[in-house]
Amino acid sequence: MRLAILDHGHGIRTKAMFVLIRVFSGHPVVDAVKLALYRPSFYRAGGLTQEAMRGPSDWSVADRELMAAYISKMNETEFCVAAHTATSVLAYNDGAKVSATVADLETAPLGEPLRATLRMLGKLTRESNLDADDIRRVLAAGASEQQIKDALAVAFSFNVTDRLADVFDFAVDDPAAINAGAKYLLARGYR
């Protein structure tokens, strides 16, 4: 982490919780958790991320985790690609589908509504700009207006998180810790 306060600046109760996490999980506390619990009266985006990723939607949890992984790939944010690829693999119980999507969206075994939605999210993330024709293509592929709104909420959340992960230089954990984190995100979510 580039800022020492994000490693060591938490209150005493949060520090005690970090000790418990280390003892019971057997893994270090991941940098995303350290950020989420630093001065929660200021940033505290967990509720918004929870709504985007776990709120009611016609997209499955696995679909939305795949969107998070794909947006993070567009941002080249290694920490978030690893974390949300692992979570999507667990949620789909299909590693090949997720790997294929991250490698090449156009040839991945996905339904057209999801493929077109990911394409749109990729353009928004890279170029910060969409026009009405971009949206019409997603509607024509079969995604609903509400599904587009839900996907844009995921994009907002991860376009914030990816930037913070990069600027604060989150450490990429070892595969066992990444998988433990993925299981936690599926069981407990983002709050």
């Binding site: 200021f42 940033y43 928004l124 993330t125 910060s128 700009n129 969409l130 026009d131 009405a132 024709d133 971009d134 949206i135 019409r136 509607l139 207006e145 587009i148 709104k149 844009l152 994009a155 907002f156 376009n159 914030v160 930037r163 913070l164 600027v167 604060f168």
Partner: peptide, 23 residues
């Protein structure tokens, strides 16, 4: 840094919602 990240993501989000309204 947090304000800068949320600001840019907000501009992206609002741009996309405007495109959705236009479509």
């Amino acid at each position: 840094v947090v304000c800068a990240a949320i600001g840019q993501a907000t501009r992206q989000y609002q741009n996309a919602l405007a495109a959705l309204s236009a479509a």
